[in-house]
């Protein structure tokens, strides 16, 4: 298994390199540069702009610029924000990234904790009332755009019932300890559930199908022929096999969670990477855009790596090849 994981990690490195090239290339390909565009005062003479370009290294050959960028990125220096003057990109990003991480993990937990039990139950009693309800919910969930679900959640649970806050991450400054934690959690509930329930539908259906398929296999018949009770047959022999593709998928899911959070954050005005990203696009704050792009791309890569490692852990047929 270690050999397999080492090989996957080694494959990860060139991919990472490629990602930096793409992120840099995309930023370069975008029209204009920081010294052009409507944001700048049109009265500044062209010579001055040219001077600034020269000073910032914007006139260097692209590979050189790329190399300079890459070497500073490697030490965590993404440069200065062009919009929030005086603030470094890393500072902006770190102030937001934890919020997004909380949101993503909360959503992932919702997905797992809802999808797995319901998926198992649906497969245990296919075509039961709960199975049908779950199916209906799944299709509704798949058909509803995330922002719309978010608006509905805000309307009912925040506006009408007043149970949960609809915005931000804290209601008042100065909360400490347990109160602070609870307050944070309350702010996470609506965005976390909207984000998490969106993928729940897929996992639930997937697990149900997978369970039913495994139940029909020869080795389950063997397990029953040994005299194992329904519990061992279901939770040991069936679930363990049915989870193989699910766990792999969860690795990918982790990678896409951060990017999935962008829309949700925007609707809930949640100060995470997503809102920062949208603002930066509006402001053409290229250094921030590049940094976030890179982070998202890297999490997707890490997600894929995790998926492969999970796969090796749960499926011995991979482990030993």
């Amino acid at each position: 298994m270690y050999k397999y994981i080492t090989r996957r990690v080694l494959q990860f490195i060139p991919m990472l390199f490629l990602v930096t090239v793409v992120v840099y290339g995309l930023a370069q390909a975008a029209p204009g540069d920081p010294m052009s565009g409507e944001i700048l005062d049109p009265d500044i003479p062209a010579e001055v702009l040219e001077e600034r370009r020269e000073a910032l290294g914007l006139n260097d050959p692209i590979p050189v610029q790329y190399w300079n960028w890459l070497s500073s990125v490697a030490v965590g220096d993404f440069g200065q924000s062009m919009h929030y003057t005086g603030r470094s990109v890393s500072e902006l990003v770190t102030s937001r990234i934890m919020n997004t991480l909380y949101l993503s993990l909360f959503a992932l937990a919702v997905t797992i904790l809802v999808a797995i039990p319901i998926g198992i139950y649906s497969s245990k009693k296919p075509y039961s009332l709960l199975d049908y309800s779950a199916t209906t919910f799944a299709f509704l969930g798949l058909a509803t755009p995330n922002f719309f679900a978010a608006l509905i959640a805000i309307y009912f649970f925040s506006f009408q019932l007043g149970w949960f806050p609809s915005q931000g991450t804290v209601s008042s400054v100065g909360l400490t300890g347990f109160e602070y934690f609870i307050d944070k959690l309350r702010h996470l509930i609506l965005p976390g559930f909207t984000l998490g329930l969106a993928s729940t539908a897929i996992y639930m259906r997937y697990l149900r199908t997978e369970m039913l398929e495994v139940m029909g296999s020869d080795f389950i018949r063997t397990a029953r022929a040994k005299g194992l009770g329904p519990g061992s047959v279901l939770y040991k022999h069936t679930l363990r096999n049915a989870l193989i593709p699910i766990i792999t998928l969860l690795g990918f899911e982790f990678g896409t969670l951060l990017s999935g959070a962008v829309i949700t954050e925007a609707v809930f005005n949640y100060p995470g990477l997503g809102t920062l990203f949208l603002n930066s696009i509006q402001n053409r704050d290229y250094p921030v855009i590049m940094a976030i792009n890179l982070i998202l791309a890297v999490t997707i890569l890490v997600g894929n790596l995790l998926a492969d490692i999970f796969y090796a852990i749960v499926d011995p047929r991979i482990r030993y090849d």
Binding site: F219, R221, T222, A223, A225, H237, R240, N241, I244
Partner: peptide, 15 residues
């Protein structure tokens, strides 16, 4: 006890 026809698929691959 029972022995089945298909030895390739009658054992659980993950145990």
């Amino acid at each position: 006890a029972m022995i089945f026809q298909e030895p390739m698929t009658s054992l659980n691959p993950v145990f």
